[in-house]
Amino acid sequence: MTTMSSTAVRARKGGGRRRRRSWIGWAFVAPFFLTFAFVTVAPLAYTLYLSLFQEKMLGGTAFVGLGNYVQQLTDPVFWDALGRVSIYLVIFVPVMLALSLIAALAIDSARLHFPRVFRLAIFLPYAVPGVVAALLWGYMYGTQFGLVGNIEDLLGVALPDPLSSNLVLISIGNIMVWLTMGYNMLVFYSALRVVPAELYEAAELDGAGAFRVVRAIKLPAIRPALAVTLVFSVIGAFQLFNEPNILRTLAPNVITSHFTPNMYAYNLSFAGQQYNASAAVAITMGVITMVVAYVIQRVASRKA
């Protein structure tokens, strides 16, 4: 009865008030929507628009509909790039997240001396700009006169070339793990810090060992954080660009101009002035990344 009358009141008043309220509401959200429109929607719309045309060095611009998409999706070069980041993602995202998790658990275990030192040391590489990190590792990877070369000379052994076709993906993965492990470790660590102390006390009273505590309390507490870091890492892997692009100057034949989808789009656009094809690649990759991220999120939340 009460519910009904209040609904009735709302309905009666609704007509006049809602109209006024909606205008005021728009005014409040306008700054956001304007920014959103300019910063997010406009570039996307423009990219989409670009991807429907073809501009030639000679002969100007013509509308080609989905021609650029058809051309890219039937080009083995695109699939080669996508395949490569997929392999990279399947191998390195789990490795990196596992290492971050182990580090976070170790620091949280209260069995380490100087946990702050460890936390800072593991986090420190994240503060190094990706470009600088790639340069730094590039110097070390040099087999002739770089660090790898120096170690070879010192020990008198022949080490494999980290920038050869077989190893280059691992070398790039190594840089990525080094760079991003600290950040993910910190996310996991903060998730662990919010676990109420009572839970641990209860576990102790129940006679749970350290590993049991990890499995029954810590890992479940981390699961939401894990889902988030997983999605971010997967997106990051699809967007792989800085590291290979910088190492390319050292290994221009191994790291081709279409090594990853982003490098492919970049080189199409800036080396070949094929802005339209580049836009089509960008849109395609955006859609693929969105789908994959969505699926991962669904799977992760279903488990939780």
């Binding site: 076709s165 221009p252 191994v254 081709t256």
Partner: peptide, 21 residues
């Protein structure tokens, strides 16, 4: 008339000879 593009794809093609491919 498109030399900078040409140079950018040298490694993808001719460059493969430098790594024995």
């Amino acid at each position: 008339p498109y030399q900078s593009y040409a140079n950018s794809v040298f490694g993808d093609t001719a460059g493969q000879a430098y790594i024995g491919h």
